[in-house]
Every structure is written in C-alpha cells, then in structure tokens.
Design a protein around this nucleic acid. Structure first.
Ligand code: MN
Ligand code: MN
Ligand code: MN
Ligand code: MN
Lengths: 224, 224
DNA sequence: AGGCGCATTTTGACCAGTCAAAAAGAAAGA
DNA sequence: TCTTTCTTTTTGACTGGTCAAAATGCGCCT
C-alpha cells in the first residue's frame, strides 16, 4: 500500500501535469508545490520511479505512468467524495473541507468510499465544482479556461473554484461566485491587473485581481 | 500533536489498565498487546514518560498520567463515534467497523468529531455497547462481569461485546448475543470449559467456550 | 549466599522521510 | 570556447518507529 506521503506526491504531480499537459514536470516545481527541498523530491521521485508510478528523466523532469495516474485519480476520488460528504451530510461550509479531506483521503478504505458514494447518490462533482473520478478511474473533462481569459461582455458559467484557500472561498461565496452561477465580465483593465465581474442573479458586480480571477474556472454558459 | 502511533500506545495502555486497575502494566504485556518487541515498548514508553503522558517505573511497569488518560479517552471517543457512524449512517455491519475506526480515529479532527456527535444525536454507546466518553473526557462505568462468571439460572442483560474479532461478532449476532439482549446461563460445565446460554426472545440456546464467553460483558437485567 | 530463569533494557541496525550544504550539469552569454 | 548562473543531484545528518540479539537486573529456589 502506498503511504500517504506517496499518495500526496502522486496527486500533486497529477495537478502539476494538468497545468502543462504533455510536458515533464520539473523537480523544482514539484518541490515548491510539496513544500519540501529539491533534494527531497529527487530522492522520492527515484523511489516512485522504482515502483513504477512515475517516469523520471534525470535533469529533465518527471511524469506519471498509467499506474501513477490511476493512483492519482483514486486519491482524487477519495478527496472529493470526502469533501462533498462533509458539506452535504455533516453541514460544513465549502471553505472548511479541503484541509480535512487532505488527511481523510489517505485513511478511507474502498469499502467506506463506496458506501459514501452510494449514500450521496453517485455525485458527479465536489463542492467546488471539481469532477469526481468514477470507481474505474474515469474523470470528466476539467475546463481550463479561467476568468482571466474571458471575453468581456460574454456570458459564462462558473465550473469550478480552486479550493486550497479557505479565505478566498468565503469571499467567493459572499459574492455569488459559486459553481453553476452565470456571470459576465463587465470590464477588464490589464494595467490595473483587475477585472469586474457581474454575477447573474446578483445586483452588485465585484472586482477581482488577476490572481484571484485565475482561481475561477469557467465553461460556456447554458442556453437561456 | 501526538502521532497515531502514540495514540495507539496510549489507548492500548488504557485498555490494559482496565484489566487490573490500580496496578502498573508490565512492559511485556504492552509489547504483546501492541504486537511489537519488548525493546520497542521500552523505547516508546520512555518517550511517552518524557512528554508526560505516562508514569514509568523501570523494571516495574507503566501507568497513564491524568494527561495520558485524557488523551486515551479522546481517542476512544473518536474510535467509538466513528464506529457508530459507520453502522448507523453508512450501513455497515457491526463486525466490519472496528478496523476502519482503528485508522480513522487518528485523522478525524475535533470539528468533524463534534459534527458527527451532533448528527448521531449525542449517543451514549458504540455499536458494541462500549460507552462513548463525552467531549470533556467523562466516561460511563464499563461493566467488568463477563458471561463466564454469571450465576446459572439468573437473568442478565448484555452490556457490551468485545469488538476486535469480526468473526466472533458475526457469530454473536446470529445468536442474538447483542447489547441490551436479556439472557440466562442455562448450564455451565467447568470441565468442558463451556456454558450454554439462552437468549430471551430466541428459541435455540447456544453453547460458548470460556474464551468466547469472556468476550461478552453483562450487567443486571432490567426489571420485568 | 549463590545460582537460575525470566522480564526488561541496551545496543546496533534498518527504513521512510526530511533538511542543509556541497557538488555537478546544463544552458545561455561573452 | 570559456564563464556564469540556475537547477538538480549527491552527501551526510537527523527523527520516529521498528527489530534482533546481547546485556542486565530482579525475584525465587536451593
Ligand atoms: Mn493528503
Ligand atoms: Mn475540492
Ligand atoms: Mn488506531
Ligand atoms: Mn467498538
């Protein structure tokens, strides 16, 4: 059984790969993402390569193997189902559940996972709009367009909000920036590095800096 | 924060103390209970003594301090609430939940614990009849009389069934030997090392060897 | 008192995961 | 081609938890 440390490295690697598909993830990037020193990553990645979870090209970078991707999706499934469970069943706010899930994702057995899945009615997405991989490891397409690249005036649907900053999630919720909300970017100012977004079914538009806007992923608006 | 290893030692020590209250638990006993070699226990107990969780008398044995007991009860609370949650909410059988709880007890935060407690309506006992310590660390009296020491012909109420053997729990359930069931020991044969117990609201009595009977704790029957 | 047996402790080793700091490689500029 | 700079790898050390095996201490029997 992979340790929780291994699971976290693999999951992290999956996320980093998403940000530039088809390329090797450099070691330094992974080190930063994992909050460890680069030498630690080198050691760990060698071990993961030995156990067949990653493909490692020294001095170039690292990539998940099929086995590694399967594990990553399994951890992601646990993480996201736990998050949804905490929100849906135990009444947590969507800003509180990420850190809890970060630990629980390593201790939930497959048996418990399946029960939770059934209990929640086989949900498709977590509270932040991230798709939940199915038991076989198939995951729905995750949109890659963020608020920063939206066309001004066009209608979009919020698909997903990054969940690693509790503070930001509370802000987003206050302003109606939640999955399935329909929005329009009213204006964009590249020099101020900010944009104004109007949330359909809300009165006051709100202003976001680009690093905040980059936390919100959008998809085409639904008809009507 | 205590590691899960530390929590398991402390919890184990609590259980061993229960079996002979007021005496020091010998190192060898703890080693056997923890499935580690005696030298490992010596090392660990010294560390626990340094952090004030146990009182350690070299070559004599070890005992929880008040701080240690508080931690033990906190872990026990997590363990038992998780067990009940798995049975009550996710539909697990009472024989499946002990091992799951053995891991989850270390990853459940106080916030999640309180939510579960409230969700279940502040229950008093786990699925096996063990009392759940309250948030302040107060625990109800745990009966110490087992089936082996019952008076033949007398009526008793099953208070608690040891939960560490899934196989036995399934057997017990099949035979109606569950908490709150009322029973009478029909006969006892010290030479055969067995006894026959009749379960009120059941037709067929069943036979238990003494090691099985020792897994079932009883209390005075309720009136009527 | 002396010796025996058993429980306990000590010692030396190992694995996973980590860091600090030194060494090595690669890429890019002069 | 030679240097400089940046990233990556290597080395040595540390912590927590464990084992095997040797050393030690204590009670008990003679
Ligand atoms: Mn994690
Ligand atoms: Mn999420
Ligand atoms: Mn445990
Ligand atoms: Mn139990």
């Amino acid at each position: 059984m992979p340790s929780s440390t291994v699971e976290d490295y693999i999951k992290r690697l999956y996320h980093e790969e998403q940000r530039a598909p088809g390329t090797l993830v450099p070691m330094g990037r992974l080190a930063e993402a994992m909050n460890v020193v680069p030498g630690t990553v080198t050691t760990m990645i060698k071990a993961l390569a030995d156990s067949g979870l990653v493909y490692y090209e020294p001095r170039a970078g690292v990539r998940l193997t099929d086995g590694g991707r399967k594990l990553a999706l399994h951890v992601l499934r646990r993480h996201r189902l736990v998050e949804l469970f905490l929100v849906q069943t135990l009444g947590f706010n969507w800003s509180e559940v990420h850190d809890e899930a970060e630990r629980l994702e390593h201790t939930i057995s497959d048996k418990v996972l399946d029960k939770i899945d059934a209990f929640l009615g086989f949900p498709k997405a977590d509270p932040h709009g991230s798709p939940i991989p199915c038991a076989k490891g198939i995951i729905a397409h995750e949109p890659t367009q963020t608020l920063t690249s939206c066309v001004v005036g066009e209608r979009y649907r919020i698909a997903r909000v990054l969940d690693n900053d509790a503070q930001f999630l509370q802000f987003a919720e206050r302003n109606g920036l939640v999955p399935e909300a329909h929005i329009t970017v009213i204006s964009k100012d590249d020099y101020a590095d900010a944009l104004v977004v109007s949330c359909h079914s809300r009165n006051a538009p709100c202003t976001l800096g680009s690093s905040a806007a980059a936390r919100i992923f959008v998809a085409p608006a639904l008809l009507q």
